[in-house]
Nucleic acid binder design. Structure first.
Lengths: 222, 222
DNA sequence: GACAAACACGAACGATCGTGCTAAATTGTT
DNA sequence: AACAATTTAGCACGATCGTTCGTGTTTGTC
């Protein structure tokens, strides 16, 4: 959801003035966090971008820390919508898992976040800085990993995956592929990043399929 | 190499005073970058930690940007030593590749960098900020990916891996596993992070082995 | 339209940021 | 020991950081 849609929604749902301003701030802030990281989320620059005064903006969040957490939560909310929510339209099992994976790779672009997934960046920024922000990052990522593992378990339930599939290991490896995609896509700017990611994903899936894959093409080449 | 060893080396090689001070600064700076990221590399805090004055420290690097790049290069130098250099002691082929992978997971701990690999963190910090620092990060990572792909190619040469193995895809997936390890180890603080990483790695290897693996245990569970 | 509540602004604060100067102290060489 | 070169300290600068406070303006309710 972009700022304009939110503005429309505000008129419909009678969102209070303060709540709407706050939402607009978060929209801008999420873009900044996406492009330049959470460290770059300064009150001054945010005020300038939103047209508010420093103190006016500051009043919506009691502290910079609370602002960071609010941005984090907003990012997580969008991930939930754009990745997990959207995948629910697909039928249970491997098809939904594949949709989930695909959505994860593209959700930042879909949301017009020019700098990639902020939640991903936050993990590296705060993994060694104890405090409420790190706790929030940890919580969101743990929830996401749990959700992915659950989607893998469903593939076992449907009989598509073998019964001895380790769903948490599967989620671990999916997280890895998504990260490799980010390196390839955002740092290296390689055009075939998404193909490489899907190739890795399909290899992962093939290894778990109940119909044993003994043919010769089970190699890491696409 | 820690500060003390460097100090000894300075006495042996007649490292000039300025060069030694610079090396000590970089040692401290690398720790800061490891724990708190490159954004936290401020002249003031570094001066305090090293006992130098702000201007005295600043004089060793012409600008903050040059300092960041110097820290980056020092980090890359250590990676080259601790990961690639060390793996050269192992025989060519899969054994060396495995050593390479293992070294990559543990090198930050081995170097007593309490906050994980700084080069990894830098990738996420600068992937969307064009400039000399990003260029340096990009260069180091591209070099590392090339080295890994080359090690995979050697496994083809030794006849251990099939001829149609895509070495760059292999390197892509290794990068992913290393990233997943970082999430699991540094953010989630999971005790079995390294087991999960090695399980994923061995699955990757098994798929590329020339001796076709059609048995039923080629599953993502360890 | 009145009135209370919510919201935004402007000014100022101490601290710290990166970065210039100049002078003093230290180092290396003869 | 003298001297030049290198290295470090001291001080100051404009800018920006997060935050507080008092005042004005806008909003929602009766």
């Amino acid at each position: 959801m972009n700022a304009i849609e939110r503005s429309n929604q505000a008129q419909l749902r009678r969102l209070s003035k303060g709540e709407e301003t706050r939402a607009q701030i978060l929209d801008v802030a999420l873009n900044v966090a996406s492009e330049s990281g959470f460290e770059a989320l300064t009150i001054g620059s945010l005020a300038e971008r939103t047209g508010l005064s420093k103190s006016g903006l500051f009043a919506h969040f009691g502290s910079k820390e609370d602002l960071q957490i609010a941005v984090l939560d907003e990012g997580a909310r969008r991930v939930t919508d754009m990745v997990f929510g959207k995948a629910m339209a697909s039928p249970r099992g491997v098809i939904r898992l594949r949709a989930l994976f695909g959505n994860w790779l593209t959700w930042a672009d879909t949301c017009q976040l020019k700098g990639g997934c902020p939640i991903m960046a936050a993990a590296f920024e705060f993994d060694d800085r104890p405090g409420p922000v790190r706790d929030a990052v940890l919580g969101h990522h743990q929830r996401m990993q749990r959700e992915i593992a659950r989607s893998v378990s469903i593939c076992v339930d449907t009989g598509e995956f073998r019964g001895d599939t380790d769903s948490r290991q599967f989620a671990f490896e999916i997280l890895g592929i998504a990260n490799a995609f980010y390196f390839s896509h955002r740092l290296f700017r390689e055009a075939d990043a998404s193909e490489r990611a899907f190739a890795a994903f399909e290899r992962l899936v093939k290894n778990a399929l109940a119909t044993s894959p003994q043919s010769g093409d089970s190699n890491p080449a696409h």
